[in-house]
Lab assay of single mutants.
Amino acid sequence: KKSYVLIKVKNPKTKETHTIVVPEENLEEVLKALASQPNVKVVDIERFP
């Protein structure tokens, strides 16, 4: 059974918020990819039960 993680990201320029759902096993690479985006800020990470 896969567990999923909900990542909320915000664009500081446009103030838009997006929610991305990723499998927990991919969380680290997704966070690394997001960290390299200049106008993306991770605001929240939630685990799915």
Rank of each mutant, 00 (worst) to 15 (best):
E46H: 13
L31P: 00
P49M: 09
Y4D: 01
E25G: 05
T17D: 03
H18N: 05
K1Q: 10
E28I: 10
K15L: 12
V40Q: 06
E46A: 13
F48W: 13
I20Q: 02
P23A: 12
A35G: 06
K13L: 14
S36E: 08
I20T: 01
T14M: 03
I45N: 01
I20E: 01
K32G: 04
I45R: 01
L34E: 00
E16S: 07
Y4Q: 02
L31Q: 01
I20F: 15
E46N: 08
K41Q: 13
E16I: 08
V40T: 09
K8P: 00
V42K: 01
V21L: 13
I20D: 00
L6R: 11
E29V: 10
L34F: 07
E25S: 07
V9H: 02
R47W: 13
V5Q: 01
V22K: 01
K41I: 15
T17K: 05
P23R: 10
K1D: 08
L6F: 13
V42F: 03
P12C: 15
S3R: 13
L27Q: 02
L27Y: 04
K15I: 03
K10V: 13
I45W: 09
K15S: 11
V5E: 00
K10D: 04
E29W: 14
V42Q: 01
L34I: 07
V21P: 02
I20V: 04
V5L: 06
T17R: 06
P49K: 07
L6I: 09
A33F: 15
P23G: 06
V22L: 03
L34S: 00
Q37P: 02
E25Y: 05
F48E: 04
V22G: 00
K32S: 07
N26V: 09
P12D: 14
I45Q: 02
E29A: 12
S36N: 10
V43S: 03
H18A: 07
K2T: 08
E46V: 15
E25F: 04
E24I: 09
A33Y: 15
N11Y: 10
S36H: 08
N11I: 06
P38L: 07
P12A: 14
K13Q: 12
V40N: 04
N26L: 13
V22P: 00
T14G: 03
L6D: 01
P12E: 15
V40M: 13
F48P: 05
N26E: 10
L27G: 01
E29C: 11
E24Y: 10
H18F: 15
I7G: 00
E24V: 08
Y4T: 02
N39R: 05
T17V: 13
S36K: 12
E28K: 09
H18I: 12
A35F: 13
L34P: 00
V5R: 02
V30G: 01
Q37V: 08
K10F: 15
V21K: 08
Y4R: 03
P23N: 09
D44P: 02
K1A: 11
P12S: 15
V43A: 03
P23W: 14
T14C: 06
V40E: 03
P12Y: 15
V40S: 06
Y4L: 05
R47S: 07
N39A: 05
V30T: 08
E16Y: 12
H18L: 11
V21M: 13
L27I: 05
V30E: 03
F48D: 04
T14P: 00
L31R: 01
L6C: 04
N26I: 10
V42G: 01
N11Q: 03
A33M: 13
K1C: 14
K1F: 13
Q37G: 04
L27T: 02
S3F: 15
H18Y: 15
K10W: 15
V21E: 04
E46K: 13
L34C: 02
V42C: 04
V30N: 01
I45G: 01
K13E: 09
L31F: 03
H18C: 13
R47N: 05
T19C: 11
L6E: 02
K8Q: 04
L27M: 05
E28C: 14
H18V: 10
V22N: 00
V5A: 04
V21N: 03
T19N: 07
V30P: 00
K13A: 08
E16Q: 11
E16A: 08
K10Y: 15
V40R: 05
K2C: 10
E29F: 13
K15C: 12
L34N: 00
I7C: 01
P49L: 10
P49N: 07
L6H: 07
L6Y: 14
V30L: 07
S3H: 13
V22C: 07
K10C: 14
E46P: 02
K1M: 11
V43C: 06
K15T: 06
N11G: 04
T14W: 04
K41H: 12
A35C: 06
E46M: 14
F48Q: 06
E46W: 14
E25D: 08
T14A: 03
E29K: 10
T17E: 09
V5D: 00
I7M: 02
Q37F: 10
N11H: 06
K15V: 03
V30I: 08
S3M: 14
T14N: 05
L6K: 07
K1I: 11
Y4W: 13
P38R: 10
K8D: 01
L6M: 11
P49Q: 11
K41W: 11
E16R: 14
N39Q: 06
V43T: 06
A33C: 14
K2G: 12
K10L: 14
K15F: 12
A33P: 00
K2M: 09
V43L: 10
E16D: 07
I20R: 02
H18G: 05
I20N: 00
I7P: 00
V5M: 06
P23M: 11
E29H: 08
T14I: 02
P38F: 05
E25R: 05
V43I: 12
E24K: 05
V9S: 01
A33E: 06
V21T: 06
L27W: 03
F48I: 13
E28V: 10
P49C: 12
V9K: 00
I45P: 01
D44H: 15
V42S: 01
V43M: 11
E25P: 03
E28G: 08
P12T: 15
V22Q: 01
L6W: 14
P38I: 07
A33R: 12
V9P: 00
L31T: 01
K32T: 06
F48S: 05
P49V: 11
S3T: 12
L31I: 04
I20M: 07
E46I: 14
K1W: 12
K13V: 13
P38M: 05
E16G: 06
P38Y: 04
K15Q: 13
K15W: 11
I7K: 00
K41F: 12
K32L: 11
F48M: 11
P38C: 10
I45D: 01
R47T: 06
Q37Y: 12
T14K: 04
K41C: 14
Y4V: 03
D44Y: 15
K32C: 08
P23C: 13
D44Q: 13
V42L: 04
V21W: 14
K32H: 07
V5K: 01
N11P: 01
N26Q: 12
N11C: 10
